[in-house]
Amino acid sequence: METQTISKKLIYQRKLKGYSQEELSEKTQVTVRTIQRIEKGDVTPHLQTIKLLATALHIEVEDLIPLEDPKEENMQTKWLLLLHGTPILRLVLPLCNILFPLFLWIHKREDNKIYNAHGRKVINFQITITLLYITSFMALLTIESWGFSSLF
């Protein structure tokens, strides 16, 4: 996905300056074939190549490379920790291991695909564990010979 963004940005900047691939190659000492492969999205260019291309196009390196926002990544990590950490509340309140992650998932699933995927997995796991716990507890109470061993 990053390669595709670099390729689109390179094509845009090259055409904006009015350079052909051959002219850009002459200005950068990067082969025409390499420029073609970068623009197709076949390869991820080395940082040195990106620097050469940016210099020849009279732009900053940041104009070609999509940079991740570290604040966004930090917030994403915090939300995922909260989503995965809330099931521990089951020790205090019954069914909170399902309800709190469910509320967080409903609230955040539209924001990012990662929240949706992790939320579904956490909720499915907690529902499965709760059902197994209830089933084994019922077996403990009703089945005399092997009920207790199914609890563990």
Rank of each mutant, 00 (worst) to 15 (best):
K27Q: 03
Q13W: 12
E22C: 07
I50S: 02
D42P: 04
H46V: 08
H58Y: 11
T34Q: 10
V32Q: 14
A56L: 06
V30Y: 01
L57G: 03
R33M: 08
T44N: 15
K27L: 11
K15P: 05
P45R: 06
E23V: 13
H58F: 13
K17Y: 02
H58K: 15
I50F: 01
E39Q: 12
A56H: 03
I50G: 03
S25R: 02
L52C: 08
L24Q: 00
T44P: 05
L57D: 02
T28Y: 00
T44E: 15
L24A: 00
S20L: 10
Q29N: 15
T49R: 07
E22R: 12
L24Y: 00
H46L: 14
V32F: 10
S20P: 05
L47P: 04
Q29A: 15
E26N: 10
L52P: 02
Y19P: 04
R14M: 01
Q13D: 01
V30L: 08
T55C: 09
I50C: 06
T31A: 07
I38F: 04
L52S: 14
R33L: 07
G41A: 08
T28V: 01
L57Y: 01
S20W: 07
A56D: 02
D42F: 12
I50K: 03
P45M: 08
L47M: 11
G18D: 02
L16V: 12
Q21H: 03
Y19H: 11
T55D: 13
I35E: 01
E26F: 13
T31I: 04
Q13E: 09
V30C: 03
R14D: 00
P45T: 08
S25P: 01
T55V: 12
G18Q: 04
Q29V: 11
T55F: 09
Q48D: 15
R33G: 08
I35L: 11
L52I: 06
A56V: 04
T28C: 01
K27P: 00
T34A: 10
Q21V: 11
E22V: 12
I38T: 04
L47N: 11
I35W: 02
E22Q: 12
T31P: 03
E22G: 09
Q29L: 14
I50Q: 03
L53A: 00
